[in-house]
Every structure is written in structure tokens, then in C-alpha cells.
Design a protein around this nucleic acid. Structure first.
Lengths: 336, 336
DNA sequence: TTGTAAGCGTTATCAG
DNA sequence: CTGATAACGCTTACAA
């Protein structure tokens, strides 16, 4: 390994001078600076991050904590887009990103806080974490800056980023309403998840505003899972053949729902209209192309990193940042 | 920050003893060990990775070097699956994974070798790197262990992992042949890419074995890009209406091809049969579901990490590891 | 403009 | 079984 010592020896100066030259300090003569840099390049010197991080008590790295990188997951491309956006911004400000998952945490029995301390993390972006995860709570109580995706922030060093799920759900439901549907069911995600609650509220609001009586049997929960949505839809439509439209709280669930509808020999959108949420890449390739609410996860990742940096640098930041969403009307909804 | 010093003070022992107790050395009494561990937990001690890495001259981390995390990319889910597999294995052996991209490299003007040295990387898995990338060449010549995805290994500390692209292409082409197609065109990737070359050879072999004359006009290159495949297909089918089947070297290109076929008012598979490559999540949801060659990128990522670890530990490893592929016959190919 | 020396948190060597 | 002490590669007062 080539170290500044080697450079110092070769340049016949002290390691201090080398360090200063390499870090572009003001108080070193042009001549020596040039000599040192030349030698450094010549012998292929690369600074040792561990040593740097040890001595400077901080470390230009951000963590992204995810619920898991699953073998079968990733179909929705959400994590990929979040990650890309985050990397892109982090890179532009010379930060690095490390990834940690709840799986690893529980497998290694290392809490998020431990992970962050160990790696001298500046702050973390969290996605897909369940709010009752004890490690999550611990992290929020620590004073690591955290940006939560899709969960409203509470706590002193915490901020959040999401779209306005309530409004988006209203728009989605109203789209169905506008097409004269009245018996509209909702395939929701998880009862406890904030996004699900918001989307449910939006659905309720739109229905109520149109003076349509709510039926609790029309609301089912499928944990954002394709398979479960399939099963729930089969049950739902078998028991309630009067239903003509379905609002799914995620495109992944819409996928399962569509399978169920096909299985029941019903047609989309002739018999059943369907609207999704997220705009996953698949959605535009489905038959028919899925009408859905677009969320730009790439931008969300970027913003999250940006937000985190502000928090780290103690600059002003928005506690709950709202991103624009967009209803994409494709072909899975038809007039009744 | 809580350090071993703090623990030492509280336990009234030396830091040496603390270190030994925490690292579970044999030569420390049960009593003191317990005391130390209790105190460590009590005051929330977390080891400092930078310090550990500095003193132990190695670092349990692996790099994955990718061609880029693009805003619009990731639709094929390949990187996600590779990453998941790699993380999964790395985790099981207590290694960490850091990610680096060619984008960052060129943007920051930091070569892969520099990145690896800086981070004290044990070895790297590379995917999607162009073989004429100078940083890539430099890395191969350094003695960092490298595992290449889809590029045959040459060099002393380099190994590779891929499916048998030649065989797979034969199977794919034969599938078309078996359905009585003769005018079979190929939408290939990049002329210089090894996988493209192998797949091309397989196509040629299958065609030749069936005594079908090869036509160079039937081979087009679309850089693995959806849009380009669209354009090339339009041109190809317009100029050669006798073509009845298309072998696409990737599902992403098949996507573009399908769009083109629809645009030309032809039907799949009645007018044109089509076969893809990769088995991306989208492929089974297309209309009709795409017949394609399945590659298990999750397992590929796992194996790559496993291979890398063997190399790092100087154990025996296979120079070119071949993974199983599988032809998935769905509904985009029909009998002529 | 340059050098000396201390120190970051940890592990490892060696002596007791 | 335990403790001084050096060392890892680097930055940063402070001194010259």
C-alpha cells in the first residue's frame, strides 16, 4: 500500500507537507505542491478512507435503510428508482451511499442505530419500514438525521417525503366516479400503513362527496401483495357481483386483481374498471394499459438525499416535503 | 462517541482486555468478559469500523461496479436481482457491499482501482462494463479479485459467471425452427459485446444445422435498447415482409420489437413469432406472454459473491462458472 | 513555508 | 489471565 509516508520520503519533505499539498491547502509553495502531486500520481497513491474517516470525526456517507432486498421483489422497480435518485444526488455532493436492510439487521442482530454509528453515517433515508419496528423507533429517538419515505415525520431530527396520498386517492376515485361507477371497491394495502390510511381517507372523501353510501365489505386489505390481491379479489367479486370498479392501492396489487378478473372470465374494462397506484414500469404494458397514479420515485430519492444533506448541515428544511403526483389515464377504466 | 476506553474505565481494566473480551478471545476470564460485555451494552458501545479497518489491514467489503444507475433504467430488474443475490450471500458471510458506477467514476474522475483501494475492497463484481473501458482494463491488471458477469475471464485474478449463451441461443432458435419458421431474423445487442457474439453464434449454428441459408440483412443490432429495437424492427419488417419470426437478444428489445409489430398492424404470434432473452418480470405479463430464455440473476449475484470470496481467501475457484438457463415457452411463438 | 508531535479508535505484540 | 505500548494512515494544532 502506498501511503503519504512514501510520498514524503520520495519528495524529501514531511508527511505534514504532503497532507497539506494533497488537500490543497493555501500554505504550501506551488513548487513543492506540484512535486508532491506528481510523485503521488507516479507511485499511484490513493488516500485511505478508513484513516481519513477515523481522524476527521465524520464521514461523507448516507445510509438507505430498506425493508429488504427480496429474491422475488423488485418487480415494481421502486427501490431501484429510489436508490438511483439518491445516488445521483449524493454523488453530486461527494457523498457515498450505503445500504442496509431490515433483514440484515435482524439476521445480524444489529440495530439501525448500531449500523449508523459503526459506519459513522451522516443520516439515513428509510423506506418500507414498519412503524412498529423497534429498531426504527430507536433510530428516530437517536439524533441521526432521518428522512422517511411515505411516513409522516415526528421527532426532532426527522423529516419526511411523499406525495399527497389523500388527494391522489380522491382523484383516482373521482376518475371512477366520473365514468359513472358507483359500486367501487378498494383493494387497500396494510391497515396500519400511513399511506394506506391516507388513500382510504381519499376514497371515502370522494365517495361521500358524491353521496354514495360506503360499504365496509367493499374495502379489503391485501398487504400490497400480488397474490393476496388475487385471492381477495376473487372473494370480493364472487360475493359482490354488483361491483363494477376497483381502486387498487398499488399497481402490484392491481396485477393480482387483473389475474383474478381474468380468472373469473370478466373483461377489463368492459365488465370491471380498474385503477392502480404507483405507475410501475409494468403498468403501461398490461392489457389493457393500466390507469394509475404516477409517483416519481427517482425524484423522491433525489429529494430525500437533498433533504438529508440539509439536515446534516443544520440548514433549514421542510419537515414534510410533498411531491407532485399525476393521474395517468390509460385504458383500464371505461364509462359505465 | 462511546469507545473501548470508556468501557475500560468503567470496568477498571485496560483497553486491551476490553478489546479481547469484545472479540471473544480465549484468554480472558469469564467473569471479566461478562462484566465488560454488560457495560458495553449498558453504555451503548458500537465498534468504530474505520478504526477497525485501519488497524486490521483488510476490510470485509465487496464492491459491485455497474455501468450506471439510470433514471429510466432498471425496468428489466436485472441490477436489482444481481444486487439482491450478492447482498444475500455477502451478508451470510458477514461482508458488506458497496456500489460504484461508471458514471460516478467518470464524473469524479476516479478509477475503479482507486475506488477499491480507497475503500480497501476485497474484490469486485462487475456488470455491464464495456470491455474497452480503460478503467476496466486497469482493474483487471491490478490484482484485485474480480468476478465478471457475462464476460469471459482473462487475467490472473479474474473469474467470470454467465449462462451458456451459445447453447441458449441455439435452443431459442431451434424453438422457432421447430415451429416451422425459416425466415428468422435476429435483433441482437451490441456488436462488440461477448454475450451478443455468443448468441449470434448460437443462432448461426442452429440455422446452419437446419440447412437454412443465412442472410446478413436478417441480423440487426439495437444496443439492447427498447427504442432502437423498435426502429430497427420497423425497418427490418418493412424491407423483408417474408420474415415470420424474430429472435431478440433481450426482453427489453423484444418490448420495442412488439411495439413495432403492433405499429405495423401485424399480430403476435399469428403473423410474427417472437422469442426473447432474460425473462424480465414484464415478459410474462405481455400480450401474448413472451417466450424467452430465463436467466436467474439473483442466483448469478449470489454465485458471483461466493466466487469472489473464494478468490479473496485464495481458495480454488472456477475460472468461468456456467449457470443453468431455461427456455420458457409461453405464447409468443406459433406454428407456421 | 515547513516540520514536530499528538491523536482518532482499534488490534496486536510482548512482557509480566 | 492481564496490561503497556506500538502501530495502522491520516489530519491538525502548534512551533519554528
Amino acid at each position: 500500500m502506498v501511503t503519504i509516508k512514501d510520498i514524503a520520503k520520495k519528495a524529501e519533505v514531511s508527511i505534514t507537507t504532503v497532507s497539506r499539498a494533497l488537500n490543497n491547502y493555501y500554505d504550501v509553495s506551488e513548487a513543492t505542491k506540484k512535486k508532491i502531486i506528481d510523485i503521488a500520481n507516479e507511485i499511484g497513491y490513493v488516500p485511505n478512507r478508513s484513516a481519513q474517516n477515523l481522524v476527521k470525526q465524520k464521514n461523507n456517507t448516507l445510509a438507505i435503510i430498506l425493508s429488504g432486498l427480496e429474491k422475488k421483489g423488485g418487480k415494481d422497480n421502486i427501490i431501484y428508482r429510489l436508490l438511483s435518485g439518491m445516488y445521483s444526488y449524493a454523488e453530486s455532493v461527494n457523498y457515498e451511499v450505503v445500504l442496509y436492510t431490515t433483514d440484515s439487521a435482524h439476521q445480524r442482530d444489529k440495530t439501525y442505530v448500531q449500523f449508523c454509528k459503526e459506519h459513522n453515517i451522516g443520516g439515513a433515508v428509510l423506506n418500507g419500514i414498519k412503524i412498529d419496528d423497534p429498531y426504527f423507533k430507536e433510530l428516530l429517538q437517536s439524533d441521526f438525521p432521518c428522512v422517511l419515505i411515505d411516513i409522516l415525520a415526528q421527532g426532532k431530527n426527522v423529516s419526511s417525503i411523499s406525495i399527497n396520498n389523500y388527494e391522489a386517492a380522491i382523484e383516482a376515485t373521482e376518475c371512477l366516479l366520473k365514468h359513472n361507477h358507483k359500486n367501487i371497491a378498494m383493494i387497500n394495502g396494510r391497515r396500519e400503513a400511513q399511506v394506506s390510511i391516507e388513500r382510504y381517507k381519499g376514497y371515502v372523501e370522494a365517495m361521500t362527496k358524491s353521496n354514495i353510501e360506503l360499504k365496509s365489505e367493499y374495502i379489503v386489505y391485501a398487504d400490497y401483495m400480488e397474490d393476496k390481491a388475487y385471492e381477495e379479489t376473487i372473494k370480493l367479486l364472487s360475493n359482490h357481483p354488483e361491483i363494477t370498479a376497483l381502486f387498487c392501492a398499488s399497481d402490484m396489487m392491481a396485477l393480482g386483481t387483473i389475474k383474478a378478473i381474468n380468472k373469473l372470465n370478466l373483461r377489463i374494462p368492459e365488465d370491471i374498471s380498474i385503477i392502480g397506484f404507483d405507475n410501475i414500469p409494468l403498468s403501461e404494458y398490461m392489457t389493457p394499459p393500466l390507469t394509475t397514479v404516477d409517483q416519481d420515485f427517482y425524484v423522491m430519492g433525489e429529494k430525500a438525499a437533498k433533504q438529508l444533506l440539509k439536515m446534516i448541515k443544520k440548514e433549514a428544511y421542510e419537515k414534510n416535503y410533498i411531491l407532485q403526483h399525476k393521474l395517468l389515464e390509460r385504458e383500464s377504466v371505461s364509462m359505465l
